[in-house]
């Protein structure tokens, strides 16, 4: 009965299954991607080598710069709209809806569109926004415009619209979650101390919702940075994003080039998340 395991050993043993899974399914694949990014390739094959050509081209090409600028533009716009919409919806649910069952019911209502696939929700915009689509024909028959609006579909506008539609819920959920934890008496106290509604919002609710906003932002930012299909479909193949470049490279069997692009994207996203984490210590706030 004396052979008890030391607490230190127990910790190691408890942590090892997770470490094993993460090592096998996360760290190892990333290491392989890094390795392949230094390999060479031809039309149909890639083979071990140690060349920096993939990175040389990637880091000096104007296409990379343009692509990243475009991706950042999408990311910032989508983040802005998602945060605005997500915060507003969560605020309404948390502070204006009185009863808990009603809050849950309305919250579930928000998730209904998510019962269908991402792609379907995205593609259904195409007939709606097209030159002869519902939006244009409605506007024309209402006499608001005489010519169909060309920029509705196959444009950056369409891309951002689809992204916001797809990703807003990722902001609503964490923000709603943190808002529900805000002690209502803090708001009463603020009101007693003479704060206006706007002051309560900026001085109490926003600071206390920060962790939720930050978690939502991480979702939205990483999803937009990694997307390729929304950009392709909604821009009619005319706009580009980092993910699309990678997907094209894979399509053309240029795996080492795709791996190099993926490594650069990974580093970029990690830097962005590190910066975001600087603003809010999520672990402390949760």
């Amino acid at each position: 009965m004396n052979n008890t395991i030391s607490p230190e050993k127990t910790s190691w043993m408890l942590v090892s299954p997770l470490a094993f899974i993460l090592g096998l399914f996360l760290v190892l694949p990333i290491l392989i991607i890094i390795m392949v990014s230094f390999w060479d390739y031809n039309e149909y094959n890639f083979f071990p080598a140690f060349i920096s050509e993939n990175y040389d081209y990637l880091l000096t090409s104007k296409v990379t710069l343009d692509t990243y600028l475009k991706t950042f533009k999408f990311m910032i716009l989508v983040w802005f709209f998602c945060t605005f919409i997500g915060f507003t919806v969560a605020y309404f649910l948390a502070f204006h809806v009185r009863t808990l069952p009603m809050q849950i019911a309305l919250f579930l209502l928000c998730t209904i569109p998510f019962w269908t696939s991402n792609i379907i929700r995205m593609i259904s915009w195409i007939p709606f926004l097209g030159r002869n689509g519902i939006a244009n024909s409605t506007l024309i028959s209402a006499g608001i415009i005489d010519q169909p609006l060309e920029w509705l579909l196959f444009s950056d506008f369409a891309v951002v619209l689809a992204f916001v539609h797809l990703f807003s819920l990722f902001m609503v959920v964490p923000v709603f979650n943190t808002m529900m934890r805000i002690d209502k008496s803090l708001i009463e106290a603020a009101r007693d101390a003479g704060a206006s509604g706007f002051q309560i919002l900026t001085n109490v609710i926003i600071p206390l919702s920060k962790p939720g906003i930050m978690i939502g932002s991480i979702f939205v930012v990483t999803l937009v940075m990694g997307d390729f299909i929304t950009v392709r479909f909604m821009s009619g193949g005319q706009s580009t994003s980092v993910g699309r470049v990678i997907s094209n490279e894979i399509g053309l069997l240029q795996y080492p080039a795709a791996a190099a692009s993926a490594v650069v994207l990974l580093i970029t996203v990690l830097i962005m998340i590190t910066i975001m984490m600087r603003f809010v210590d999520i672990r402390k706030e949760l």
């Binding site: 081209y57 090409s61 104007k62 296409v63 343009d66 692509t67 475009k70 193949g237 005319q238 580009t240 699309r244 470049v245 094209n248 053309l252 240029q254």
Partner: peptide, 12 residues
Amino acid sequence: KHMVRKWNELIA
């Protein structure tokens, strides 16, 4: 390889 890179420039 060169052609594909230039094509990507067109798309971007």
